[in-house]
Design a protein around this nucleic acid. Sequence first.
DNA 1: ATAAAGTTGTGAAAAAAATCACAACAATGC
DNA 2: GCATTGTTGTGATTTTTTTCACAACTTTAT
Lengths: 226, 226
Amino acid sequence: MNRDQGISVPLPTIRRLPMYFSLLQKAAQENQTAVSSSQLAADLGLEPIQVRKDLEAIGVSGQPRVGFPVAGLIHAIEEFLGWDNVTDAFIIGAGHLGTALAGYQGFENHGLNVVALFDNDPRKVGQTIHGKEVLHIDKLGNLANRLHVHIAILTVPAEVAANAAQLAIEAGIQAIWNFTPTKLAVPEGIILERVDLAASLAVLSSKLAARLRPAEPTVPTQETQA
Amino acid sequence: MNRDQGISVPLPTIRRLPMYFSLLQKAAQENQTAVSSSQLAADLGLEPIQVRKDLEAIGVSGQPRVGFPVAGLIHAIEEFLGWDNVTDAFIIGAGHLGTALAGYQGFENHGLNVVALFDNDPRKVGQTIHGKEVLHIDKLGNLANRLHVHIAILTVPAEVAANAAQLAIEAGIQAIWNFTPTKLAVPEGIILERVDLAASLAVLSSKLAARLRPAEPTVPTQETQA
DNA sequence: ATAAAGTTGTGAAAAAAATCACAACAATGC
DNA sequence: GCATTGTTGTGATTTTTTTCACAACTTTAT
């Protein structure tokens, strides 16, 4: 239906794009020019048809008996996600999590450039973490405006998350990547994405719990299942 | 169909359980004994009917005109996720991410007890992080077996992720919570759950890219955060 | 008692996502 | 040239998840 670029790309597809992306970059490094949906699917544990549907969604066509163009795919994903134009970001909260993220090399490939970190702890202000300065949170508003930074990566303790988010919004931030366990209430128009560790842990826990659970037949009668 | 406890609880439901859980704990602290689906829904930005379906899935019934029992819900979620019996876990990789996780208080409520950290860096071995010892990775096999630790939290650099996972599996670990950007290949029977930062970033990026893109119609704006 | 109001629970419907079946097609081998 | 084979692309189908509509029910007010 949608001939051009994705008029409406399903959310699960968007979530899978980075996996393709990383695989494609590896393929490009090995000078592979084309890759088939079955190849990608095998590497990622998906179905080939799902890969084809995903790639169709972002508007890339393949060639029968050959596959999809590696360079074309990389370009299409980068453009769709805006990873071709690097966006500046601030990290708010220079604790261990903030520090870990500041040092994460992968962001360069993902259109993200961490400009600086912010904290309210005087002992941290002035330090340099992975080549980035730690500034006092009071400077946030001034700098975000002046440098046109669009993204705030929120890695503060839960208790001050709402406060920090408020500051970021007042500073003109457009998108908040929320690593705290707090559900933020933001005004219309602010893009919000939360990394929900608890949700992920719940999936793992439920599987483990199901396995460790004895095997409880409900009532001692015959098969109630099936 | 499934009368008893969740023979088959939808994955999206499982992911939402922690949100209910945290809200319910707050309610319990305020001595609330019952809570309605509309209340929960409003607090989380969901639809009441979805909340009711979720709670039905884990086998809890409410009372018309009253709501659902707070204590009963907490108990049911804890039992379903195995968060009532605390499970021991190792953190493999004592870098900033591992350190951040070792200090995360929330795990106590989530059935997770971090016993120790492991690393191969001699400078880190012997340190104490948030009250937990950092041990050399060589001791992993021995200890996991002896202490019956089931969960490995993987926070090593991507390059050594596969290796570390292999060690954990040989040590008898049953579940791996993978924080690295690596797709691990594990034998049948090993529970695997990955925290995929890139996927999360992709959702945020695509929204931001859609907004910054000239006239093009937008990407579906669906609540991922809620 | 009776009415009113707010809530649950259920079967059906709709929407979204994944998968299937197969036609069209292009590279390769003969 | 011609058959063979591995691949894409598409419309239909199935499965999963969300949402709707409304009956049943229980507390509160009158």
